[in-house]
Simulated scan of single mutants.
Amino acid sequence: MNVLIIDDQPISVKGIEDFCAEKNWEVTTIDFDNVYQQIIEKEPDIIILDWRQDADHIDVGDEILTKIWTNCFRPIIIFSANAAVISIAEKLQKSTLLRVFSKGDETPVTDYLCKTESFVVALSDYRKEMSNAMIEALNAVQILRSEGYPGNSVFKYILSKRTATFFDIQYSGELPPAWVQYVYPPVVTSLCACDIIRVIAPETDYNSEGNPEEYRIILTPSCDMVPARPKVTHALCASCYPKEKFHNCVLSDNPKSKNISSVQSDLNRGYNECWVALPGIKSILPYMTVDLKKIELVDLSKIALSMSEKNEDTEFVRIASVDSPFREQIIWAHMQNACRPGVPDRNTEPWAKELLTG
C-alpha cells in the first residue's frame, strides 16, 4: 500500500510513518506546498491529511480536500488537532472513504489503515484501470463521426455503456458473491421491479438486518411506477419468509453434499416452484425466501425511496434493488407461477407411452 501523509510538522506523524514502514508499505510525508502535483507524482492509495489554518485563520485543509475530491479522489484520513471543530462539506461527510481522527492518539489511524489495506489498494487499481476503460470507450465511438454528434447526454450514455462493458469483460474470470445481484444503496430515483422494501416500525433498527417477514419484493413493472406518468397507484408485492422455505432439507451445521447440490441447482435456475431465494448482506438484508403466491398490493404513496424521504405516512422504505439480469430471472419465476393457464386433467399415460415407443 502506498500512503501519503500531508503535514507541515513531520514529528507529529512520526509514529504513523514508522508503523507504515514496519508494514513494508510505501510511505511519504510532505508539507502543504504543491500538494496536488505531488499527489499526481506519488499516486498514493490513501492520504493522511492534517487540517491546519493559515495566518488568516483560513482552513488550508478544506481547499486541499476539495481539490483531491474533484481531481484525484482516493480514501482520505483527516488527522488533526482541530478534528472536533473542523467543518466539512455535507457531501464529503457522507462519504465512507473519508474518516476524521484527532491527533494525540495514532492507534485509530493505524487500525484503520490495516483494516482497509486490501480495499484501498483495489480501489486504486480500479481508478487506474478506469483510464484504460475511457480510452477503449473513446476509441470505440468512431461511428459518431459519420453519424453526427448526438448531444452531450447521449454521448455520455454511450461512453458509460462501453466503460461498463470493458469492466464486465475485465473481471469476468472470477465468481462474485451471491449478493452482487443487489444495487445497494439503490440509485434509480423511482421504484423498480424487484426493489426490496422493508416495513417501517418504531422499534426497528435500520442499521441491522431485520427478520425476513419485514420485507417485500415489488413485482410491478418498473415502467408502471414512474412518478411522472404512473399507470398504477399500488405495487404488487410478494412476501418474504425465512431462508429454509426455499428447500425441504433439514437445517444442519454440516449440510450433506447432495443437499447442497440440490439447492444449488435450484439457485442457478432462479426458483423452486413458487419460492425464490434472496442472498443476505451483513447488517442490511437477511437470507430469505420470497413466496410468489403470497402477494399483496401496497400503496405507492406509502413507500419511501430512502430513510431520508420517509414521513409520518410511510409504511415501507426501499432498502435495495435487484440488478439485471437477476431481476428478469425473478420476474420470469413470477410469470411461471402467475401466468400459467389452467387446463383440465387428461389421461396422458397413453400419450406418454406413444412418445417413448420406438
Results as ranks from 00 to 15, higher is better:
E136S: 14
E136K: 12
A137T: 04
L138N: 07
N139R: 09
N139K: 10
A140F: 10
V141G: 08
V141A: 08
V141Q: 15
Q142V: 03
Q142I: 04
Q142K: 06
I143M: 04
I143N: 03
I143A: 02
L144C: 08
R145A: 04
R145E: 09
S146T: 07
S146E: 11
S146D: 14
G148K: 05
P150H: 01
P150C: 02
G151D: 07
N152K: 08
N152F: 08
N152M: 05
N152L: 07
S153K: 12
V154R: 13
V154S: 14
V154M: 05
K156L: 15
K156H: 12
K156S: 06
Y157C: 07
Y157R: 13
Y157S: 13
I158Y: 01
I158S: 04
L159I: 14
L159T: 08
L159V: 12
S160E: 06
S160M: 06
K161G: 01
K161L: 11
K161E: 10
R162L: 15
A164N: 09
A164K: 15
A164E: 08
A164V: 04
A164T: 05
A164Y: 09
T165G: 04
T165M: 11
T165C: 07
F166V: 10
F167P: 10
F167L: 09
F167Q: 09
D168M: 12
D168S: 13
D168K: 15
I169D: 02
I169K: 10
I169Y: 08
I169E: 07
Q170D: 01
Q170T: 03
Q170F: 03
Q170A: 04
Y171I: 11
Y171G: 11
G173V: 12
G173W: 06
E174H: 11
L175F: 03
A178V: 05
A178R: 08
A178I: 01
A178K: 06
A178G: 02
